[in-house]
Every structure is written in structure tokens, then in C-alpha cells.
């Protein structure tokens, strides 16, 4: 078991191995996202019943909650990648960290934006400075800091390690986001999905939500693979295997 894991880890850990293996995965993840997200959204927006208090405006949940979940998960993913970079100096982890940052930032922004759109009709305001909203805004700033740091440091390896330190320092924000609704009397409602409990809504309401969430995770993984593959080609362009690959593609007329 352990030796298999180690082999798997090393295969994915080398840029060449990652590039070769990710192609097929990318296809399936992209396909999953392409099916799950439209299915979940159509089901949720058109067919799921409306809420007894919020009426139709609750339907924004089908995008808001998955985006918010992903924005946090992507940051945790980056923190794990950052740890791997600092401890094992793994090149691929560093490229994945760099690739994940803009995607996470995008979803974080979308979560905040859809939340504002939701907040106006239900709470009566676009924005309140309560703990959940503020900590989510800080998450967006942290993403921007990571992206800016990458932009500022020329040497890619050093940029990757510096960003890893920054991401690890900022990870303190994640539990704050998670528990902000329980520690403080916030306007924002508690978590919709919990791992340990059944969601407090009937199945025809949460099933489309689950589809959307899975779809968005697949979409994230797909974008991540695509961006990382690009990054690999860019950085390894002087190596033999990339040259061979590119000449082969040129010759076959792709």
C-alpha cells in the first residue's frame, strides 16, 4: 500500500509524469463538469421547489454555496501544496499552487458577488460587515496577495517558495471563516452543508445543490490541470521531452 502510494506520488510529482497522466484525467473531469453543472443548475433554478420564506430568491444558493465552498477548499489545497513545496521542494506542487490561485480568487469573488445579490432582497442590504462576509473578503485579499507576489518575483522557484510561506500564514483565516457563523452573532446563516449532519432541507432541494457542488469541484480540478499543464510546458520548454512533444505535434500538423 505504502510503496504503491509512494510510486504514485513520484509519478505525479515529476513534471513529465504529470503532463502525461493528466491528459486523460483532464478529459473526464471536464466532461463531468460539463454535465453536472448544467444539470444541477437547470434542476435547481427551474424545477426545485421554492422556499417557504424567501420564495424564488433562495435559488441563488445553487451557485453561491458551491462557489463559496470551492473558494475555501482551493485555499486549503494551496496550503497543502505550499507545505509540500517547502518540505519536499516539489516542482509540480509549486506549479499547481500558482495555477490554483486565480481560480480560487475568481470563485471567491463570485461567492461574494452572488451573496450580495442574495442579500439585497432577503436581508435588505447588499453588504454588512459581519464576521462571515468580512473573513470571506479577507480570503479574496489573500488570494490577490499570492497572485501579486508571484507577479513581483522574477525567479520562479523563489516566487513559488515565497508564495508558499504566504499561503501557509494566511491559512489561519480558513477556520475563522468556517466558524464565524457559530462564534459570533452574525447576520449570515449557519452552514448549509455539513459533513456530519443531514442538511436542513428536503431532498429535492439539496440534490441539485449537491450536483452543482460536485460539478464545480470537477470544474476546478479541470481548470487546475489545464493551467498546470500549460505551466509545465512553459517552464520545461528547454527540456528534451517537451521539445520532442512539440516537434511531434508540429509534424503531425496539430
Amino acid at each position: 500500500m505504502w510503496t504503491r502510494f509512494k510510486r504514485w506520488f513520484h509519478q505525479w510529482g515529476s513534471p513529465k509524469g504529470f503532463y502525461e497522466r493528466s491528459q486523460r484525467w483532464g478529459f473526464w473531469l471536464g466532461l463531468a463538469a460539463l454535465i453536472l453543472i448544467p444539470a444541477g443548475l437547470v434542476w435547481g433554478l427551474l424545477f426545485a421547489p421554492q422556499d417557504y420564506q424567501q420564495g424564488h430568491s433562495f435559488r441563488i444558493i445553487y451557485f453561491h454555496v458551491p462557489a463559496a465552498m470551492l473558494a475555501q477548499s482551493a485555499y486549503v489545497f494551496m496550503a497543502v501544496a505550499g507545505l509540500v513545496v517547502l518540505v519536499w521542494r516539489m516542482k509540480v506542487a509549486e506549479m499547481m499552487l500558482k495555477s490554483a490561485a486565480p481560480i480560487g480568487a475568481t470563485f471567491c469573488f463570485l461567492a461574494l458577488f452572488t451573496g450580495a445579490v442574495w442579500g439585497k432582497p432577503t436581508w435588505g442590504t447588499w453588504w454588512v460587515w459581519d464576521a462571515r462576509l468580512t473573513s470571506m473578503l479577507i480570503l479574496l485579499f489573500l488570494y490577490m496577495g499570492v497572485i501579486a507576489l508571484y507577479g513581483a518575483i522574477r525567479d520562479r522557484q523563489i516566487a513559488g517558495r515565497a508564495a508558499s510561506v504566504l499561503v501557509l500564514v494566511g491559512v489561519i483565516n480558513i477556520p475563522i471563516i468556517k466558524y464565524s457563523v457559530e462564534w459570533w452573532n452574525t447576520l449570515h446563516q449557519p452552514a448549509t452543508f455539513k459533513l456530519t449532519e443531514k442538511p436542513a432541507m428536503p431532498v429535492e432541494m439539496w440534490a441539485p445543490l449537491a450536483l452543482c457542488a460536485l460539478g464545480i469541484y470537477a470544474c476546478f480540478a479541470y481548470c487546475l490541470l489545464l493551467r498546470t499543464r500549460n505551466e509545465i510546458l512553459e517552464r520545461e520548454k528547454r527540456t528534451l521531452w517537451v521539445r520532442k512533444l512539440l516537434t511531434k505535434e508540429v509534424e503531425s500538423g496539430v
Partner: peptide
Amino acid sequence: DEVLAKHDEKYMPPEISR
């Protein structure tokens, strides 16, 4: 000068709530 409504994480269709 400002009134904000707080809602909880429970969602249900109107028929069930009735």
C-alpha cells in the same frame, strides 16, 4: 434607520411549511 432580516439555514417548500 436600517432593518436587516436574519434567516436560518433551513429551507423548505411552502407546502411542507404549511
